[in-house]
Amino acid sequence: MIYTSRKDCLQIFRRQSPVTVLGPYKRAVIWVQGCEFACAGCIVPESWDEAGGETIVLEELAEWILAQPDIEGITLSGGEPMRQAAALVSLIDTVRRSKDLGVMCYTGYRWEQLQQQGTEAQKSLLDRIDLLVDGTYIESKHEDLLWRGSSNQRLLLLSDRYEQVLMAELAMGDRSAGMQFAVDLTGAFYFTGVPAKKGFREEFAARMQQHGITI
């Protein structure tokens, strides 16, 4: 496994809040930078390069999270969060000393693999996660699913925090929570969420380009 042991900062691709389509309730979402899986059809391939993104000090990121109004939790996406497990453990512990926020996390690894072969930092991160989405995205298995893109990916409750809300969501139908759209500081248009339709990014980008809008 590829990982870093740095604990004082994170390399991130993006941060956004509030987000309502990547986990229960309103959330602050952090996309970490760097991913070894490079899944075909990934909707954020810009997050693969470990040298990309921005470096942010954990204290600053924790302050940003705590300043977000009305959020219930944090979602960690990417990129691959398990590459920067030590820093994420520190971030979660810092935030939770001030506010009890839930943690949802995406990873390309399987839970069993992390339990058996993961580093101590990765296992510590698992101990702090309430809801885990595990497994790589497989384009040929794309389906319209709640908070995940392909049928091999699992929603795993690692605590009882989200048990009731997850059961309620699934009872209403295991389908995408939808998409959010925004403009970043550079004026670029971007979207957040798990598309119900395979190839969404390419189709959406083409349609926006027709109107002179870059994503």
Rank of each mutant, 00 (worst) to 15 (best):
T186D: 14
M172Y: 09
R27M: 13
L155I: 06
D144P: 04
S77Y: 01
P45F: 01
G52P: 14
R175S: 13
R15P: 11
L126Y: 13
Y137P: 12
R148K: 03
P195R: 06
E50K: 10
C42P: 00
I43T: 03
S159G: 03
V183H: 07
S140C: 07
K197V: 10
L66I: 04
S17M: 11
L22V: 07
I215H: 15
I138Y: 09
T136L: 08
W147P: 05
Q33I: 05
G199L: 07
I30L: 11
W147R: 00
E50G: 08
L91N: 12
D93I: 06
A28T: 08
T214N: 11
E163R: 12
C42E: 08
G41W: 01
R14K: 14
L156T: 02
L58C: 10
R14D: 10
M82P: 08
Y162S: 15
G41N: 05
V133C: 02
S159A: 07
Q115R: 01
L76V: 04
H142A: 03
D144R: 01
L76T: 04
V21I: 00
M179V: 10
C9D: 04
S17G: 10
A40P: 13
M172P: 15
T94R: 05
E139A: 08
D174E: 07
L166I: 01
Q209R: 04
H142D: 03
C9N: 03
G53D: 03
T192R: 08
T20D: 12
Q84E: 11
L155K: 09
I12R: 03
R14N: 13
V194G: 00
D134R: 07
G41A: 06
D160E: 08
R148M: 04
I213Y: 14
Q116M: 15
Q113V: 11
E80N: 12
G108D: 00
G173K: 15
C105N: 00
A177N: 06
L10D: 03
G53L: 09
Y137L: 10
E202K: 14
E143V: 06
L157Y: 01
K198V: 11
F181K: 03
E59D: 09
G53M: 08
R175I: 12
D134I: 10
A85Q: 07
H142Q: 04
Q11Y: 13
T75F: 06
E203S: 08
S5I: 12
S124D: 15
M208V: 12
Q122R: 11
I43N: 09
G212I: 05
Y190A: 06
A168E: 15
Q164V: 10
L76M: 01
L88S: 02
L170K: 00
E72Y: 10
G193I: 06
F37W: 07
G212P: 04
E139C: 10
P24I: 01
I74M: 12
T4D: 12
M167C: 15
A40E: 08
Y109E: 08
A62N: 13
E139Y: 13
M172A: 14
A168W: 13
A86W: 10
K141I: 02
M104P: 09
R161G: 02
A168F: 14
V89S: 02
A67I: 00
P81D: 09
T192Y: 09
G79M: 11
Q122G: 09
R175L: 12
L145A: 06
G199D: 04
A40M: 10
L145I: 00
A51H: 11
V57Y: 13
L76W: 01
V183G: 06
S150V: 14
T107S: 09
Y190V: 05
Y162L: 13
